[in-house]
């Protein structure tokens, strides 16, 4: 009698172990994507005085007081700079980053660090144009010259006819 009971128990243990092992094996096949690594959505350079500022748009889902983007790194032609950030209130946010006066046309790329999920990948390298004062002046003056020329020819044509 006892022998039969023991065999039944062993059978149950076997079934329980099998269910547990099968459950684990089957569930490990399902891999939900929970990782919430930030992504660099856009980098927009603009000029303030002689400095170039990068407006870095970052997306990071579910920001909270402990789960947020706390650091970004900016790679300017291989030299890496960083800045630390405070918790964000929105999923998409813009970080202005001053890279100073640009000489030449450096390649810039950015990555962001989440307090829980670590680093994003580096963004696609972006060629930063050299905004010299001369270039800026030229950019401002050229449309004016074009306008003047256009109105002059317009007037000449009118007078001719």
């Amino acid at each position: 009698m006892k022998m039969i009971e023991r065999m039944k128990s062993q059978q149950k243990l076997l079934v329980f172990s099998l269910i547990l092992i099968l459950g684990v094996a089957a569930s490990s096949l399902i891999r939900p994507v929970l990782a919430d690594v930030p992504t660099i959505e856009n980098i927009e350079p603009w000029i303030s005085g002689t400095d170039t500022i990068l407006n870095i748009t970052i997306r990071h889902a579910s920001p909270t007081g402990t789960h947020y983007v706390d650091r970004i790194e900016v790679d300017i032609n291989g030299s890496i700079e960083f800045t630390t950030l405070f918790p964000q209130a929105t999923v998409t946010f813009i970080v202005p980053y001053n890279i100073g006066e640009v000489i030449g046309t450096p390649l810039v790329s950015v990555r962001a660090h989440c307090t829980f999920h670590g680093w994003s990948g580096w963004s696609e390298p972006l060629l930063i144009p050299e905004f010299t004062v001369f270039l800026l002046l030229a950019l401002a003056v050229l449309p004016m010259i074009a306008y003047l020329l256009r109105s002059k020819t317009h007037r000449a044509l009118k007078n001719g006819s």
Partner: peptide, 15 residues
């Protein structure tokens, strides 16, 4: 644990 929490735990590289 196997479906949700372990993969999530393993993704916490920043933590």
């Amino acid at each position: 644990i196997v479906i949700v929490m372990l993969p999530s735990f393993l993704s916490f590289s920043g933590l």
